[in-house]
Design a protein around this nucleic acid. Structure first.
Lengths: 197, 197
DNA sequence: TGCATAATTTGACTTGCGTCAAACTCCTTT
DNA sequence: AAAGGAGTTTGACGCAAGTCAAATTATGCA
């Protein structure tokens, strides 16, 4: 089976994941609009300040999203892995410049659809709005989890909770970014892991 | 003009806010599904652990949402005022028990629609999915703002940012809840306000 | 294989903020 | 007007975690 066949399969899975049962005629119109892209480690997939022109979904690889606060400090907002969307959702929907950037932490392959194509498609099949709602609510839940995580005061407990909720992060992501995600100093996280705190 | 007329007007404004241009026939079918309710200060509007059976939108008053963490500590998630939705969105969409409760901080009047009625209505007019996406993306942006707020390390700066983003909170909400929302001790917030920190 | 650079760990020092406790102010109710 | 209670302020003290700095361990690349 070729890589493209595989990818097409992934695209179809994404569609049914977010829309449920899809009609033949819907699929016929939607599939030609779908594209594929590859990124190297360190590549920017979306840049803050720009209005996202597409919605990307990860096939393989790991992506990190982050923003810069007023002091210029980089704040990691989230990690995105296989079978998850990775794009500035709010900005995509509201058509405003994104506050967050998305960068590949490893070689990354994505499926993507342009904003223009997608909204044009929506005019024919408005029920696909449900897909947007699904993506948004997934992000909402993830964001809510992160917020809850951040509200735990002790660094030790915060890290413990992360292990519980997203253990894969700890194996795939460099310490610096985990610390940034958890809102603690790199050194503190190191001490927590060594059981010294 | 009677109170009910006023309320009906508010309901219509809500609908066009979230859906855009609404057709006559759409409105005719939707309006009869809409109800009104009043709450006293302290009344629970939604309770955590329950699957929300309705979506409420505030006409007048102020609502606070919060959850209890594993240590039993109450954490304030958000404040909701006039012309804003106030219900456990994620749970409403995903049909799972809510983690947060919603309580009236003042006398509150709301428009609401039952989950059942709304989803039944959606079968006839699927394009109204866009309303869900709108509500979700509003919540998403609000949640994102809160998360950003919480990531500011200094209490002083955190409070300053709140004043900048949502000044009305400071005038309408008791100190205890603001402190809880900002993730700091009541005493710390008091000192910050007195300029002692 | 070995060097260079990055990533992580450890140490020493400082401080913001939480906790506990008590005082003070402002409503509400009788 | 007085009493009671909620909401807010002030004080004293201890500690978790931030910062700066240096050592140690990994990792990629020639």
């Amino acid at each position: 089976m070729s890589g493209t066949d595989n990818h097409l399969q992934t695209a179809i899975e994404y569609i049914s994941k977010y829309i449920g049962n899809v009609q033949e005629e819907e699929l016929e119109l939607l599939l030609p609009l779908v594209r594929f892209a590859n990124y190297q480690k360190g590549d920017l997939i979306y840049k803050y300040g720009e209005i996202p022109k597409s919605a990307s979904f990860i096939i393989t690889g790991a992506v990190r999203s982050y923003y810069f606060d007023e002091d210029g400090k980089e704040n990691t907002v989230g990690f995105h892995f296989e079978n998850e969307p990775a794009f500035p959702y709010g900005s995509f929907v509201e058509l405003v410049p994104a506050a967050t950037s998305f960068v590949a932490m490893e070689p990354v392959a994505v499926v993507w659809i342009s904003r223009h194509d997608f909204y044009h498609f929506l005019e024919t099949f408005p029920r696909f709005e449900i897909g947007i709602a699904k993506v948004l609510s997934e992000y909402l839940i993830k964001g809510g989890q992160h917020l809850k995580l951040m509200r735990i005061d002790s660094s030790r407990e915060r890290y413990k909770k992360l292990l519980e909720l997203q253990p894969e992060i700890v194996t795939r992501v460099p310490l610096t970014y985990i610390a940034s995600y958890l809102g603690m100093a790199l050194e503190t996280l190191s001490r927590v892991r060594a059981g010294k705190l």
